[in-house]
Write a protein that binds this DNA or RNA. Sequence first.
DNA 1: ACTTCCAAACCGTCCAGACGGTACAGTAAC
DNA 2: GTTACTGTACCGTCTGGACGGTTTGGAAGT
Lengths: 181, 181
Amino acid sequence: MPPAPVARGKILRAFAELLTDSGERAATLDAVAARAGVSKGGLLYHFPSKDALAEGLAAHLRELTEADVAVMRAAPAGPVDYLLRTSTATDGDFEVVYLAVSRLAQGAYPHARAALDDAHDAWVEAVAEEVGDPTVARAVVLLSDGLYARTALGAGGPRVTDDDIDALVDLVGVLAAARRG
Amino acid sequence: MPPAPVARGKILRAFAELLTDSGERAATLDAVAARAGVSKGGLLYHFPSKDALAEGLAAHLRELTEADVAVMRAAPAGPVDYLLRTSTATDGDFEVVYLAVSRLAQGAYPHARAALDDAHDAWVEAVAEEVGDPTVARAVVLLSDGLYARTALGAGGPRVTDDDIDALVDLVGVLAAARRG
DNA sequence: ACTTCCAAACCGTCCAGACGGTACAGTAAC
DNA sequence: GTTACTGTACCGTCTGGACGGTTTGGAAGT
């Protein structure tokens, strides 16, 4: 595997960006190629079909998830803090791709759903280790899903601020303590 | 307003169903018309364009929201219980339409986002009255969003059971109590 | 009571453009 | 000579939308 094809990465990135901020409908092959600064022929060289492109993005999410969960486990403020804080990010490779794959999962792309479920499971596991209660862990991940969902709607209504996240992290702390006590 | 056009309701329903369980991509005018048992011409009589159809659905959500929030406030087990429990329903007029409008909101339909935000605000308000703490109220609605998000992915991974909801409602109770001191 | 008429509600067909995909000749770098 | 592309031309299908035609319920006139 020499230099690693540059265009491949740009295509995946462009596809993810189009999906997250313009929806599935707008993410056509032509649009992806244009955004990636690549010809349509070049796109189809790397991903011979649209399905292949979707699978490629799902596979990419799996790689990113592995790395992200490792970072999450090592986060100084703990997994809960890390998870909730990153759930409102719109930049960052992981968040963009995660949101994009969520879009795909709503269509006819089973691989996307599977990749999402795996990420989900990894999160629940990591959070459970911190809070010590599986029910609380699942609630935290649900909170994260809710945050992602609102983030995905874009700059519509009132944005979720850092202070809001602080309050949520606090709440989870109270919850974990109450459960243990 | 005599007989009230039957087809109009069927079209909205069909559109919502297609959006929720097959995605934005699959919800074409032809598909909607076929599912509603109406000709394409008939569809375009009621909704002169696809944008108009989307607006129609958003408007319909507003009506349903009004009614649903009223029911929620009067729910015997309280708003929190009602909200969380209905967040996993896939049948029921409200849930189908809510999920459908969520899909639209991800595309280029600003009205959809606005209708969603309004529903959101109404929920936070109603929940806040029960739990007495705005932060907890927002967390509950985020939980609901998370549940909706998972529900929307369909029968993929492990479904959320009634027991899970019981546990969540419990958790919220603990939280509210802890907050009150 | 009967005809007239009209508008609402709906059908079926056609079209221009967009979309996914194919094919292939060429090119620049390693 | 292989890898990694570009560019252009093309095809069949799908999509949103336009358009003209048809059925139907009932108000109005006599």
